[in-house]
Design a protein around this nucleic acid. Structure first.
Lengths: 251, 251
DNA sequence: TCACAACGAGAGCAGCGCTCTTGCTTTATG
DNA sequence: CATAAAGCAAGAGCGCTGCTCTCGTTGTGA
């Protein structure tokens, strides 16, 4: 979805030989671009290299994408979706929302470690001439929504730690609180703002350590990042549901 | 320091007309590269653009740097030092180590926000063909050392929260603990590993939210990142010295 | 069957990092 | 002081990049 064709093609288009071939070539280009991305990094993605890999002339690629940036956008959307799919699948394997949060956060990091270039494309320093277009914000918000949704389930089950909520509320200034409330209205959350803040805090924390690991800044600290991330996830869970619910309860 | 000349020049070199001019041109190149960096981003840093800005032919730059990567390395070292200098200065304005930690963490973020391209060069997705050479790890470790040093002061004053330490210790696995102990030996820390872990956790957390703000991922959550960061810093401080020592005590 | 649109390839533009050669200026030496 | 050596800047040129335009070929709908 959200293609980047020169001309929009609204209706499903009955399957002719031409449309089938077009779909095939599009898929091949996407695959080649993904492979190039994983090998070289986002900023070095070369249209000509992609064309070579597919076996096309460089100019032929412009029949499928208006330019390099649109190919990047396509990859960004695909990567956001793949990341969110992985996290969603991990969370879906658990009924208990606490275990689901734990699995989601761990998978958030695991996918990033397994797909460093894709992750860098999404969350690294912006590619020089490239600004993420609006069609990427929808897929980009999926993971965050997912985590907050799970926190919402914890809240509905009255399992969020009262003291954590109190502390978080005491730190909230009016401006941030009203913005979180607006966010909750936009996204349809039925949570008090301090609960959203707790969820956001935890998500930000895991994202932070993930970024550091993927970009290599965790290596000076530890050669085995996995247990460190696990400890951070457990710290986040403890913040959410109280220190009593330690690592083992959530598994 | 840590130049990247084709030939090393050990001794101070008496100030001749030629060395003076060389120093001038080198400064101009560094300034131009910094300006280009801030304008375009690290991956798009173009030798030719730098040469144009300085008013030199592209080939002339190779008298000063063996290649683009060495120019990048020079910028990386300078940026690490500038960042660490800013944080050190902020911390140095406070006698109380808790206030110093607070100031250091806030300045860590403030410098990053004020110098997004430089920060992206240091902590963003790695530049495609470029791998940070060993001479960058020294300057890169300065900020972390600084924060842990302040935590060390808090520990010496018996102000670290006992319960936080206990909780952190209970989450530490043996492998991570021994690695932190090795790190402490290497750097000369005189702290128990769980205290180091607490400090690292806090630093990682602030780095995480800083990365998100600088790279634009915090904007979907709040339009005013400053107070959110402040709340996170206060949460980190509360984790360090206990919830009693809230925001106001540290100021 | 036939006009049309889609397609792929090739040539060519400006820009990039980098190398090599050429001429000039400053330095160090006999 | 004259001269050789070293440092410096510029230009040409290599292969690479994104991108545009043109030109045959091929599948499609009337």
């Amino acid at each position: 979805m959200t293609e980047a064709e020169p001309q929009p093609q609204p209706q499903p288009q009955r399957s002719t030989l031409r449309t089938r071939r077009r779909e095939e070539v599009l898929g091949a280009i996407r695959a080649a671009a993904g492979a190039e991305l994983e090998g070289q990094g986002a900023a070095a993605l070369s249209l000509r290299a992609v064309a070579r890999r597919v076996g096309l002339a460089p100019s032929a690629l412009y029949r499928y994408f208006p330019g390099r940036d649109d190919l990047l956008t396509d990859l960004v959307v695909a990567a956001f979706d793949a990341h969110a799919d992985a996290v969603q699948a991990a969370a879906g394997r658990h009924r208990d929302p606490l275990a689901a949060v734990r699995a989601a956060l761990l998978e958030y990091r695991a996918w990033a470690v397994a797909n460093p270039a894709r992750f860098g494309l999404l969350y690294g320093a912006p590619v020089p001439g490239y600004a993420a277009p609006p069609e990427t914000i929808g897929p980009g918000a999926r993971v965050g929504d997912l985590v907050v949704g799970l926190v919402e389930q914890l809240h509905a089950q009255h399992r969020l730690d009262a003291e954590s909520l109190r502390h978080r509320a005491s730190r909230l200034d009016r401006g941030t609180a009203s913005e979180l409330a607006a966010l909750a209205r936009r996204r349809g959350y039925t949570l008090p703002v301090e609960a959203i803040a707790l969820g956001v805090d935890g998500f930000v924390r895991i994202h932070g350590v993930t970024v550091m690991e993927v970009f290599g800044q965790l290596r000076p600290l530890t050669s085995r990042p996995a247990p460190y991330v696990e400890q951070t996830v457990d710290a986040v869970l403890a913040e959410l549901v109280g220190p009593a619910a330690g690592p083992r309860e959530a598994r």
